[in-house]
Write a protein that binds this DNA or RNA. Structure first.
Lengths: 124, 124
DNA sequence: TCCTATAAGTAACTTTAAGTAACTAACAAT
DNA sequence: ATTGTTAGTTACTTAAAGTTACTTATAGGA
């Protein structure tokens, strides 16, 4: 049975609160990177250009709390921590992957649209 | 030919700059609402709970600049402004629609995951 | 022995973005 | 004369994001 009692457009709905938390770039980059295999903290830090340790740590914690990823610490020296996607996270990750890479396939069109807009609205 | 020269993980890539601008809740709500038919400013304001006039106006302007929506003003009194999705915007809108409504279909699982996480990590 | 490096973070501080509230124009209806 | 409508803008505040330095425990090299 689908949850027709949830409405993402209603600001107090749990689904809306959830959506507010997933609709940011760092969350989506992490979900996309974890789609195929587990990845370690510093590896994510290196691969997702521009993310800080603070934002990575914070976002991972939120994703773990929401049951979208798991955190596994290995007692090596120094400690190794691996993040992996859950089955629930996987259902979201596939969609996020399409969205994240949409910009790569439509970059030229958007750049052209921006140039056209800026030319039309110059010094107004 | 796909644009393999674009890489969304590289912070200076145009596709990344584009992704940064679309990866926020207001952008996605607007794209989703315009998916089926053109909608007016105040109608969007009423339907997207929690958005302010400022953020709606600002986000619409960015979407128009990127060629994802069009703005049409009708000389009625008071003036009526209609926003409509473009063919380019439509390709994005379909994916955004899946993402936005994902939370409605998985709300219960996430809520359960949060409760489990909070119970395990209480007063630490 | 001392210095440097590593992994996975945390804490304090600053900057930027988002949210809030009040205000605008031009006219129509009460 | 006051209120209501649409589609915004402006000034101000608060919350989130970004930046930099620091932490713990240990291994490796000079």
């Amino acid at each position: 049975m689908p949850d027709y009692n949830y409405n993402v457009y209603a600001s107090a709905c749990p689904s809306r609160i959830m959506f507010d938390s997933i609709s940011n770039k760092w969350t989506m980059f992490i979900l996309d990177r974890l789609r195929d295999q587990p990845v370690r903290f510093n590896q994510l830090l290196r691969e997702i250009e521009g993310i800080s340790q603070k934002m990575l740590s914070q976002t991972l914690k939120t994703l773990e709390r929401d049951g979208l990823i798991t955190r596994t610490a290995f007692p090596t020296v120094p400690v190794t921590v691996e993040y992996a996607i859950t089955p629930l996270g996987q259902t979201l990750s596939s969609t996020v992957h399409v969205l994240i890479h949409w910009a790569e396939h439509n970059g030229d069109e958007i750049l052209a649209a921006r140039a056209a807009y800026d030319a039309k609205n110059k010094q107004v």
